[in-house]
Amino acid sequence: MNDLMPQLQSLLTHVDWSEIGWASWDTLVMVGVSLLFSVLIGLPLGVLLFLTSKRQLLAQTRVYAVLSFVVNILRSVPFIILLIVMIPVTMMIIGTSLGVAGAIPPLVAGGAPFFARLVETSLREVDRGIIEATQAMGASVRQIVLGALLPEALPGIIAGITVTAITLVSYAAMSGVVGGGGLGDLAIRFGYQRFQTDVMVITVALLVIFVQLLQMLGDRLVLYFSRR
């Protein structure tokens, strides 16, 4: 047992643990902040997509077509391209396209439309009868959304947040390619460019653990909020 530690130490010669710690924190911040904004933008966008679609409360074919088109564009562009295309926009908003802060706008640009579609889908799964019953009670559209639709779709929306968070973890790692910071940046700078395989292994392992934890947390919350 006592000889195991030095042995492990010699395997991981290049690993600077404090650097790993900081990079993990950065990833956490990037994912957390971009998830927050993805939800803040994606949730209303998803609700709007749902409401304006055919035969729904605010059916507006034109509005739906435009929203849907924008969402589809953002979703069909590979994220690595989105990262590059977004650089000027990011410069405008943040002032830099580098580091943790610089990674957040492209992450939100990728995460928000993704989440919006998931919200739209889970709202579609709410029984039409429930909307109708609420309408028959004299509810306004706003009351139907806040009082009936969102609470009924909550498990689906939480599952959507989980999937979005996990997607953002991989997007955040990818942003290392354009100088984004975090574990992805570490993997690229040390693991890839300097052939420090041990650093690569550790970062990948940490990302895997992170995703596992997110999934577990998400599943628990879904279970907690499911009353069916």
Binding site: D127, G129, I130, E132, A133, A136, G138, F225
Partner: peptide
Amino acid sequence: GSGTLRAFRRKVGMIFQHFNLLSSK
């Protein structure tokens, strides 16, 4: 109009074949 209609609907209860209760409440 929409406001009067909503007030009117409160005075008309409705029940359904599949109950349509909110499962989250």
